[in-house]
Design a protein around this nucleic acid. Structure first.
Lengths: 104, 104
DNA sequence: AGAATATGCAGGTAAATACCTGCATGTCAA
DNA sequence: TTGACATGCAGGTATTTACCTGCATATTCT
C-alpha cells in the first residue's frame, strides 16, 4: 500500500488545490493549472510530480503539452483502509472519552 | 476547516501508527504508546501534540498519567469534503482518462 | 528555417520537520 | 519525606521540503 505517498501528497494545500482544479476540469495542461497558482511553473511541476508519484494523477503527452488527469483509485483505497476503520468505531470511541470525562 | 492540520497530521507514518494503536485500545497513556514505537518518549510527545492540534486526539489527565483518546470527527469531515467529492465523480474521471488514452 | 510556446532539468536556499539530549516538574507509594 | 515514576519543557541538529533562478529541449506555426 502506498498510503504514505498518498497522505504526504494530500498534506500540502497547493496539491489539494491542484486536485480541486482537476476535479473542476479534468485533463488540464501544466500551463492551465499554473494560471490558478501563485508560484512559478517549476514549483507547480514538482507538486504535480508528487501527485503523480502517489498515483493520484496520471499524465498523457499530447504534442508539446502534458495533460493531467485525476486518478481517484488510491484515494478510495485510503478511504477504505483509514476512514472507514475509524468511522466504524466512531460512536464507541466517543463513548470511551465521555466515560473517562465523567470520571470512569 | 482545519483540513490542512488534519492532512499534515495524517502525513506521517508514526502518527498513523499512533491512531492505529489508539484504535486497538483507546485511552492509552503516553508510556503505553511509547512501548510500541521505536523512538524516544519526547519524539512521541511531539507527534501526539500534532495529532491533538489537529483535533484527532483528545487527552485527559489522570493523576500523573495522560490518557489519549481518538476523536474521529475531523476525519469524518475530511472524508465528506475530500474523498466523497472525488468518489462521486470516480467513474467519469476514469472515463476522461480512458478517452484521452484512446486518442480522444 | 526561425520565432514563439510548452515543458524538462539542474542546482541553490530558507523554512519546516523529525529526530535527539538534558533537565525540570508533578504525582504516587512506602 | 523520599525515591520511583510519568510527563513537560528547552534547546540542538540533520534531513526534508517548498520555493526559487537559469538554462536546455521539444513542438508548433508562420
Amino acid at each position: 500500500m502506498q498510503a504514505d505517498d498518498v497522505f504526504k501528497a494530500l498534506g500540502d494545500p497547493t496539491r489539494r488545490r491542484l486536485l480541486d482544479l482537476l476535479c473542476e476540469q479534468n485533463g488540464q495542461t501544466l500551463g492551465q493549472l499554473c494560471e490558478h497558482l501563485d508560484m512559478t511553473r517549476q514549483s507547480a511541476t514538482q507538486h504535480l510530480g508528487i501527485l503523480e508519484a502517489a498515483n493520484l494523477v496520471s499524465t498523457v503527452r499530447r504534442g508539446r503539452e502534458k495533460l493531467h488527469f485525476i486518478n481517484p483509485v488510491p484515494l478510495h483505497e485510503v478511504y477504505e483502509r483509514w476512514v472507514r476503520k475509524f468511522e466504524r468505531q466512531r460512536l464507541s470511541l466517543l463513548h470511551d472519552l465521555k466515560k473517562e470525562l465523567e470520571g470512569e
